[in-house]
Design a protein around this nucleic acid. Structure first.
Length: 598
RNA sequence: GGUUCCGUAGCUCAACUGGAUAGAGCAUCUGCCUUCUAAGCAGACGGUUUUGGGUUCGAGUCCCAACGGAAUCACCA
């Protein structure tokens, strides 16, 4: 479509020269898709031209339209509505564009490495509890953005950093030592991450009890919170870990391994993956060296108590701590080290995309500034893919109040809902049990992914577990359903000997609704680029929905198999093919699989 | 209090980045399955785009102010 608009712009510029004797800039020619209530395909907005034409919008449009009719072969008709010049484009053009799009292998997908190498970080869980709904949004988002960037031409490296170290895991360790009696995932049959999470909860229960006891003995609340024995024990474990105490490190390794096995199960169900994993325990010391180097260069400064800071007040930010007075690192220290390490490990890395919730916006603003001051070329190109929280009707998820929506549970529920719907409809009774199981996951997970990705990332969103995720309307299954119908048509074409290798379509075979769908579909390459530029899967989701909606409407009153006119039949096969290929590609960018039947 | 983000139909979201009469889905109501899969299609209902100013041919979109909500401003992660 860009191609078409470029041609039309050039013609319009020539037209302005001929009609009004002025040179106009390309930016003055505004072209958009004609709204569906008007005749025509592309619209030139005339208002900006009235300044040079010195005529009314209607008169300006009329002169330009007449000139284009004569001199631009693509334009076969025009109409002026107020200040809008609506151009009808030759259906031969649409026909040819469609066929050529059908004959490239991955229409709209840019060649790999045509754009620079980028890194997408997502997930980044703590290892003390299982993944929840918030992680689902995070993971689907990061995974999808990685795919979109790849489709736009970037080389993409998907990574996560695992927060495997710190007080949180020590809490689980203490509780397991106290109450675990050697329980393991194998002995209990509990998934590893769930088991560790169980002891994190057990810690919290005991911690609260001890605080209550202390308070009843007359200890002020603040002191009680700091001096509860179980907390001290956890802190002690953390110190032992940092000193490398063999027994503690072994327990830490053991419990983390349980968690990783559990996470791996969830990731695999979700269909997300990573190219490289980073562990905080490997990287948390790296930042220190960088900070010390920066201290010598004057990027950082030390306060009297020995803590290290950066002053970003002239950037509109505050002073920010990068090393504690005891020399231990904070979150920022670690992120500095990890970032610099990644630049070294992946030469030519153009930027990093951090998929992290919007509560950390300030943190990343500071991080990017620091990286820039440390001399990273293009550090300001780094992007915090910030997303809003997923909220429940009663507010935020709180693990302490048990309102957390568990990722594994939700996935199971989604597949079950798909199963329930499918058995009510009874269209797939002849599939094998295994085929059915696959289908229920495709549909159920598809519904969930679409639900979470169709909303712009920055917006916080509502999730009502009671209302559940819809399967009708603007949903993943609606798109899958239309795909399945279209595929079914194409299969039957093959059965009935109707050719599906389309090399040309007679332009006279199209009706207006079809030309409109073609036009919509030909926007695909730009949609991919736009989604990549904005790091926004919802752009893809919306396009997929609009295209599907149009196809579904068309499907209702255009039969392919029963169309007697051969040229029309061919045209409809081509359109159906275009639809199935594009929608499959689009959904793939969202991580949604398409079934053959449903 | 400072900074940032958000506010569109009863609910959940769009609106091609300043263009035409602000669109979908859900919910409610009415039609359509002997016709390629009805998880569908068509129609009805539903709006002072939170409010008030401004910028211009033109504002949901940009600027200012107010109101409402969220996040952040930790030697937490």
């Amino acid at each position: 479509m860009q191609h078409l608009d470029t041609l039309l712009t050039q013609s319009a510029i020539a037209g302005c020269k001929a009609c009004f004797q002025v040179d106009v800039l390309a930016s003055t020619i505004q072209i958009q898709q004609t709204r569906k209530e008007f005749e025509g395909h592309r619209t030139i907005v005339v208002f900006p031209l009235t300044r040079v034409s010195k005529k009314s919008p209607e008169e300006t449009g009329k002169q330009l339209g007449e000139w284009l009719m004569e001199h631009e072969p693509l334009v076969v008709g025009f109409q002026i509505v107020k200040g809008f010049l609506n151009l009808s484009i030759s259906s031969v053009f649409w026909s040819e564009q469609l066929v050529s799009a059908l004959n490239v292998s991955e229409y709209g997908i840019a060649p790999l490495n045509s754009l620079p190498r980028v890194m997408v970080e997502y997930s980044s869980p703590n290892t003390n509890k299982p993944l929840h709904l918030g992680h689902l949004r995070n993971n689907f988002l990061g995974f999808s953005v990685a795919k979109i960037l790849r489709a736009a031409g970037h080389e993409v490296i998907k990574v996560q950093i695992i927060n495997d170290r710190g007080i949180h895991i020590c809490k689980s360790m203490v509780a397991w030592k106290r109450y675990g009696n050697g329980e393991t995932p194998e002995s209990s049959g509990i998934k590893g991450d769930k088991l560790v999470g169980k002891y994190y909860v057990a810690f919290d229960v005991e911690y609260k009890k001890e605080i209550a006891v202390l308070i009843s003995e007359g200890t002020p609340e603040d002191d009680a919170k700091k001096s509860a024995p179980i907390l001290l024990e956890a802190q002690n474990l953390l110190h032992q870990w940092e000193r490398g105490d063999a027994e503690v490190v072994e327990l830490w390794k053991k419990m983390n391994a349980w968690v990783y096995a559990g996470f791996e199960g969830t990731y695999s169900e979700m269909g997300v993956s990573f190219d490289k994993l980073y562990y905080e325990s490997d990287t948390y010391l790296l930042g220190k060296a960088q900070v010390e180097k920066g201290l010598k260069n004057g990027v950082f400064f030390q306060k009297e108590d020995g803590s290290t800071w950066i002053d970003l007040s002239d950037e509109g930010l505050d002073e920010k701590l990068v090393l504690r007075k005891d020399g231990t690192s904070v979150y920022m220290t670690q992120d500095i080290g990890t970032a610099l390490m990644r630049y070294e490990e992946f030469p030519g890395l153009d930027r990093q995309i951090y998929t992290v919730g919007n509560e950390q916006e300030y943190h990343f603003k500071v991080l990017f500034k620091i990286l820039s001051k440390l001399g990273i070329e293009g550090a300001e190109r780094n992007f915090h893919l910030s997303y809003g929280m997923v909220e429940l009707p009663e507010g935020k998820m709180k693990s302490r109040e048990g309102t957390v929506v568990d990722a594994d549970d939700l996935l199971v529920e989604m597949a079950e809902t798909a199963k329930r719907m499918a058995s009510e409809l009874g269209k797939i009774n002849d599939l094998s049990e295994q085929e059915k199981a696959t289908l229920f996951k495709q549909v159920g997970y598809g519904a969930l992914k679409y639900f979470l990705l169709k909303v712009s990332p920055q917006k916080s969103m509502m999730f009502d577990p009671a209302a559940s995720v819809d399967f009708i309307g603007n949903t993943g299954p609606f798109i899958q359903f239309n795909f399945v119908r279209a595929r079914s048509v194409l299969r039957k074409c093959i059965d009935e000997g109707i050719p599906t290798n389309i090399e040309s379509v007679d332009a006279s075979a199209w009706d207006e609704s079809e030309l409109r769908i073609i036009q919509q579909a030909l926007n695909w390459p730009e949609i991919v680029q736009l989604a990549a530029a904005q790091y926004d899967p919802s752009v893809i989701a919306n396009h997929g929905y609009e295209l599907t909606k149009a196809y579904s409407r068309w499907y209702q009153d255009h039969s392919v198999l029963k169309e007697p006119n051969e040229a029309k039949c061919t045209a409809r096969v081509a359109l159906t093919q275009m639809y199935t290929r594009q929608i499959e590609a689009a959904m793939a960018l969202l991580g949604i699989e398409m079934p053959e039947r449903m």
